[in-house]
Simulated assay, not measured.
Amino acid sequence: MPTVDRASYRNRGGFLQRLISAYKARRFFTKVGANLVVKASAEFRVVDHAVLEVGDNVTIQDYSFFQLTMPEPKVFIGNNTVIGRRSIITAKNRISIGNDVLIGSDVQIIDHGHGMRRDMPIRLQKADIGFVEIGDDVWIGAGAKILMNVKVGDGAVIGANSVVLTDIPEYAIAVGSPARVVKYRD
């Protein structure tokens, strides 16, 4: 009898996992492809008019946190994409994640920031709102942060604990804080 790798994200789970995924799909998502896996501990805070769409074979791991808040939040996740444990995706405008994307644990993807004018406390200022666009076949290492107004090109690799503040070209390997391109995939 072959051994089952229960630790792999490729393990789609059993009957109870399918029930949990189906409930969360109906409750929080506006469009869902086939074979969505959402772990029980994944948390969603979503305003009524938010758009949260995922393609086929998407896995959202344990303790992931999605926050889609005012004014017009939209999150699009392509086919065969994995959101790692304890990752945070927070949108006020638009975050798009392509097909075949692997997002490691503890990754943060954020499309907005705080205003920082000097004439009033930061907590009272309106948010600066942008976007995040992540292409296809991207690997984002554990602990990385992708901040607003950034495009990560197809095939790019973002190193663990990197902070992405500017666009990353296709097939680039970027590391550091702030992230910078160190080479390109072969």
Rank of each mutant, 00 (worst) to 15 (best):
G159V: 06
G135W: 04
M116E: 07
P121F: 06
M120R: 15
K92E: 13
V82I: 12
R117S: 13
G153Q: 10
I103T: 04
V132E: 06
A160M: 13
D154S: 09
E133W: 02
I140Q: 02
Q61L: 14
M148E: 13
Q108W: 08
A127R: 08
A127D: 14
I146W: 01
Q61A: 15
I97P: 08
I60P: 03
K151C: 13
I129H: 02
R117L: 12
V58T: 06
A142G: 10
I77W: 02
L102D: 11
F76C: 03
G84F: 06
Q67Y: 05
A160V: 04
D62I: 01
K92W: 00
T59R: 14
F65A: 00
T69E: 06
D100Q: 11
G159R: 07
V138E: 00
K74M: 10
I140R: 01
D137C: 10
D111S: 05
D137P: 03
S162C: 09
I88D: 00
F131Q: 04
R94G: 06
S96L: 07
K92S: 12
G143P: 01
M70C: 05
W139K: 03
V152K: 07
G143C: 03
A142V: 09
Q108P: 00
V75H: 00
I88R: 09
T90L: 00
K126L: 06
L147M: 15
S96F: 00
R118Q: 11
R123S: 12
D62V: 08
D128M: 10
V132D: 05
F76R: 13
K92Q: 14
I122Q: 11
S96V: 14
I97L: 05
K145Y: 00
G104D: 09
K126M: 07
Q61I: 01
I83C: 07
